[in-house]
């Protein structure tokens, strides 16, 4: 009888777990900050909606001619260290420092010029306030100059599926082996797409 009760309780717990929403967001998740991102197609989505898959995040702006193209190049290099199925298991997010000029059209044009795979890449802008908040949260520094250009630090940041920063690198222009290894670990931890 006792056993039966226990089994019943266990079953009830299982059902409840299935019904309830996913576990609470960890306190050290960047998704704790509400940020609305508008992408290269003009779609607006909360950044927290990216929860569930690892994310490679960086910040840039489209009119930047110096380091930013190399940031994109470095992300692509890092991605290509994975085999084709593994490349499907994480997303890439690049948020603009320059929401005034990087509107939807500018982001779309940049994606086209750089031939970015929009299955993998999201280029986004948000409000000036949220841009500053997001940079602060990610530990990225930037400063607008009087001529409209930006001084900024260049970093690639790896988030786990719950939005925790698990790795970062400021090595740009070549692969950072430690960062690549962290990405491989995150992707290995993810179930293949399409399976429950």
């Amino acid at each position: 009888m006792k056993k039966l009760l226990l089994a019943g309780a266990a079953l009830l717990l299982l059902v409840m777990a299935g019904v309830s929403a996913r576990p609470a967001l960890p306190g050290d998740s960047v998704y704790q900050l509400p940020v609305e991102l508008s992408n290269q197609d003009g779609q607006v989505q909360s950044m927290a909606a990216r929860r569930g898959r690892p994310q490679l995040v960086t910040m840039f702006y489209t009119s930047c001619t110096m380091v930013c193209p190399m940031i994109v190049e470095t992300v692509e290099k890092t991605r290509r260290t994975l085999d084709a199925p593994a490349q499907q298991r994480f997303d890439i997010l690049a948020v603009s420092f320059d929401p005034q000029r990087d509107d939807t059209a500018a982001l779309r044009k940049y994606a086209a010029t750089r031939k970015l795979d929009l299955q993998r890449w999201t280029l986004a802008h948000t409000t000036p306030t949220a841009t500053r908040q997001l940079a602060a949260l990610l530990g990225i520094q930037y400063r607008q100059l009087p001529d409209g250009e930006f001084n900024h630090s260049s970093e690639l940041i790896l988030l786990d599926a719950d939005g925790r920063i698990v790795a970062r690198t400021d090595v740009i222009g070549r692969l950072d082996p430690a960062f690549v290894a962290a990405l491989h670990r995150q992707v290995a931890a993810e179930p293949p797409p399409g399976k429950p």
Partner: peptide
């Protein structure tokens, strides 16, 4: 290599 960490007009 590290100069590349900063994009823009350089040092303040």
């Amino acid at each position: 290599a590290d100069k590349l960490r900063f994009c823009g007009a350089g040092a303040i």
